[in-house]
Design a protein around this nucleic acid. Sequence first.
RNA 1: CGGGGUGUGGCGCAGUUGGUAGCGCACCGCGUUUGGGACGCGGGGGUCCGCGGUUCAAGUCCGCGCACCCCGACCA
Length: 479
Amino acid sequence: MSEDKLPSRSEDYNDWYNSLVIRADLADYGPARGTMIVKPYGWTLWENIQQALDRRFKSTGHVNAGFPMLIPKSFIDRETSHVEGFSPELAVVTVGGGKQLEEPLVVRPTSETIIGHTYAKWIKSYRDLPLLVNLWNSVVRWELRTKLFLRTLEFWWQEGHTAHATYEEAQEETRQMLDVYLDFARNEAAVPAFFGRKSDSERFPGADLTYSMEAMMGDKKALQAATSHNLGQNFARAFDIQYLDQNNEMQYCWTTSWGLSTRFIGAMIMTHGDDQGLILPPRLAPHQVVIVPIYKNHDEKALVMEVVERISRLLESSGLRLKIDNREGLTPGFKFNDWEMRGVPLRVEIGPRDVANESVGLARRDIPGRDGKSFVPQEGIGPVVEEILAKIQLELLERATAFRDANTHQPRDYAHFKEIVADGFAFTGWCGGEECETSIKNDTKATNRCMPFEQPKDVGLCIYCGRAAVEQVYFARAY
RNA sequence: CGGGGUGUGGCGCAGUUGGUAGCGCACCGCGUUUGGGACGCGGGGGUCCGCGGUUCAAGUCCGCGCACCCCGACCA
């Protein structure tokens, strides 16, 4: 740590983000351009995200599997729009064991093709359906401009791949998994998101329909935080995924895929973080509570540590994830700032005064300074801490929701629209024409983020061309 | 691939008219400190991005590479 203070968000949001990722000990740059090393603190956060999602996947009937990272290049070429979408960003392996390969292999940019190939072998009968599999893995996409967590050459994620007998079932799955993501984001990460359908230009290459979750970051830009695709029969036809139905007739399957990546960590950083550093939601934070002991000499240390041990046993017994900062040679003040940088939701301070008063000091990360501090009795500390954590969790969501809504507006006209998307989200009518989307993008850098399922009766006029709108859309500048 | 910039201990930088490399932070040791980013003393650490050239002498001047960063066209 060369400087004490983080660059401020208002002065340079980008610099704030880049510094914070490093300073909070989440991740670092890998030696190859555009690669990321996720450090233990960041990975623990990812593990907590994984667990929260995995629970939800299991409870909706999915099972996990592992698939190869290397895919025959010809697989990618099988589905027309998939090739077009991914060709520019493929990493291709042409040499193996010192010999030129007969057929190049690609490092998976996503697994639809190898899943298609495999499902074609696994699925013979309607009795094999639905097939509900999820993969936890990493993928590689050769991006030009990279940024830790948001866009790196390799990133970690989960990709769900399901096959169904009917369109309706596949559609239901696509929608269900979007709801799983929304529930996770809202109730675990305290990230409120808009959601809906992607326009044709923003759709996943190879999908009939893409749903997405769009969150507003602290700089009022949008971040696509998860996607769910109804792939129709596109991959089923390309890879010949067929089954015999009850009438002994061959039918193509209907497939879906859906994913959430380590990018979501970026969403959490930029939803909750402030100029002091990260603010992590208690349900996902690697440490929910950090205890900082305070003492001047050996005698005080002995007294203080005795209380620290007792309190920590108590809190851990109620299942809290707890960290005691017993590092020597660092002042309490330094430790306060350090854990604030890392976003620990609640700090417990225990010093000689607390030993004497049978109290502890509490400091809420989400309320900086004196307002977030209080002294409470050691007696009954467990329930008090749990209550505060629950409150923080709730208030983070409330705050983020209020921020999102305060910065989302319905424009009166195109001039007003331009003003809005320069610093927020616009919700407005669109004629459905790609030309209008493109013009808006060239004009304002704002893109069509998604179109909500619930539409007003009167969708009004297209904000760009003034013709009748087909639906209302969120427009925003996006990551 | 276009435009701009930078390469010097782990990180951030300084290095004058060419004269044999320094500062802050971090790191190690000892001591004093410790309720909001402590201090003193001592210490370790460098193919100055690479190659070639000019010169008695190159971090510094010249040429050619390479890498990375920022801004544009593509993207979870």
